[in-house]
Design a protein around this nucleic acid. Sequence first.
DNA 1: GTACGAATAT
DNA 2: GATATTCGTA
Length: 242
Amino acid sequence: MTIAEETFQSCSSNRNGGSAFMPFSTYSSVPVTTVKLSAPKEEKEETVMNGFSLLTSGVKSLREGFGSRGSRSSSNRAVSSSPPTVQPSLRTPPLQPQQTSRKQRRCWSPELHRRFVNALQKLGAATPKQIRELMQVDGLTNDEVKSHLQKYRLHTRRVPATSGNESVVVLGGLWMSQEQYNDSSKGSSTASGSPQSPLHLATGSRGGTSPTEGDSMEDDEDAKSESYSWKSHIHRHGKVGV
DNA sequence: GTACGAATAT
DNA sequence: GATATTCGTA
């Protein structure tokens, strides 16, 4: 068993409990009997099961010719004007729902996330590639890490020092709260009481001036903490103008 | 061409 | 809300 396999599992979380949603459309002309059950191995790529691909939802509208999004910065990219010969009809490519094959959602299980954060701390300055390499998770792609990193940053940097913010906690609002602490009791709450663990911030030296920073962080494969939600919604009671 | 960051789409 | 994909740039 590779770490990867283990790391991947445990993604079957909630069912209609909250935010579980299926990327696939709800309408299936055919009762797909192909239950995704007992799939020996999960394919990395999208697997088209029947003639009807469930992944068809990814019908992309054409985004060409219109400056739909080219409004960024300067220079538009898709500004093809005046197509030489525009066929009125005909030439309509029988484009069947062309699924550009959206990848299956990557399940960032706590374990995976833990590795992610771990890598972040080790690196200090984390770039997707580095993280990916450090995580050593097979099957994980740069894009996935990148995406996750984006989310991570979004949630971690929620500290607008708009006015005089008073807090220091902001930094403390980091992601991982409880982990690494494994009690003898395995079943239950990993930290119910929840003494917030003293997070060691990533040395804070973003500049990475010295490679000497040797954190003794071995490969600790543990921490079953669930739900790494960034519920650290920092409520700033007090006053917020506007 | 690759990689990263942000914006956007699903 | 979470992840994927696209866009712009270094």
